[in-house]
């Protein structure tokens, strides 16, 4: 067994180095032997966590679902340790131009809908599942216009979502899907003119990233890591810098209740099979 807890994180942005170097230093200062490695995409990280090559992973929700399937196929155990307060109860929105003739989801029949990357939970998988639940089958009832930026990053790269918003305003699509936060951001930054889009639908709340433990992390060390992260206080200026970078005000215990919509989306599209194998069409991280 490794003495250090080895965590994997995906390098979707250069700031990831700053964030995890900061957490590493802080955790080691608290007496916890901790190190991290970076991955270029989530699929290898999900496989390595299930295989015990790393002890823990800062996982996208999709990577978490895959790890869980891989682990259960292998008969080993994984569990969510913590998540950010900002990872809970997110929603995605489906918007149209405000002057659009589309007024209900049913009006989308025969139209084109812009989404983010193939593996983005918030701007592709969950909103398309939402429309499917309303009786609209992607590819059959409407065209899907994908924006595959940062494939393998599970939507962490904002580029695909922003391109979907641009496609909507350029008239290349009749609707676009994005997470609520980015709809606000795109309005503030001008990618979408304020008031220039109308909300057509909003998904049910779902959860996002999770810090997951793999089979190589024993309960003692998992408990110690969890306890330390939960103790991080926004009132401490050293900690605050790290939390600001990672976009949270406090860590909360991990929970499994927020992944239902994504699970249905994965099964609906055949993104992974029941044993966690990648089965998505044309998905090359």
């Amino acid at each position: 067994m490794r003495e250090e807890i080895l965590l994997g994180a995906v390098a979707y942005d250069p700031k990831v180095v700053t964030i995890w170097t900061g957490f590493r230093a802080w955790l080691r200062d608290q007496g916890l032997p901790f190190d991290y490695v970076l991955y270029a995409h989530y699929e290898r990280q999900a496989e390595d966590l299930a295989a015990g090559r790393i002890d823990a992973a800062w996982h996208s929700p999709l990577a978490w679902l895959r790890t869980r399937r891989l682990a259960s196929a292998a008969g080993v155990e994984t569990r969510p340790l913590v998540m950010r307060d900002t990872d809970r109860d997110l929603t995605s929105v489906i918007v149209v131009r405000s002057d659009s003739a589309v007024h209900t989801p049913a009006d989308l029949k025969g139209r084109t809908i812009a989404v983010g990357a193939v593996d983005s939970p918030q701007s592709t998988l969950i909103p398309l599942r939402h429309l499917a639940a309303l009786g609209l089958t992607p590819g059959t009832d409407f065209e899907v216009l994908r924006h595959d930026t940062g494939v393998g990053l599970h939507g962490d790269h904002i580029g695909g979502e922003r391109d979907a918003a641009r496609a909507l305003m350029a008239g290349a699509a009749d609707a676009a899907c994005m997470i609520d936060t980015n709809h606000l951001l795109f309005g503030q930054e001008g990618t979408l003119p304020p008031g220039g889009t109308r909300l057509l639908a909003r998904t049910d709340p779902f959860d996002h990233c999770v810090l997951a433990a793999g089979p190589s992390l024993d309960a003692d060390r998992a408990g110690r890591l969890t306890e330390l992260l939960l103790s991080m206080s926004y009132e401490d200026p050293v900690v605050r810098r790290l939390l600001d970078l990672e976009g949270l005000t406090q860590w909360l215990p991990g929970r499994e209740t927020g992944f239902g919509q994504l699970t249905e989306a994965v099964d609906m599209t055949g993104f992974y099979d029941g044993d966690g194998r990648v089965t998505a069409d044309g998905y090359l991280p």
Binding site: T91, D180, H183, L184, R202
Partner: peptide, 10 residues
């Protein structure tokens, strides 16, 4: 949705 997103972050 916007109010919710802003409050979540704050």
């Amino acid at each position: 949705p916007h109010l919710t997103a802003w409050c979540r972050h704050e």
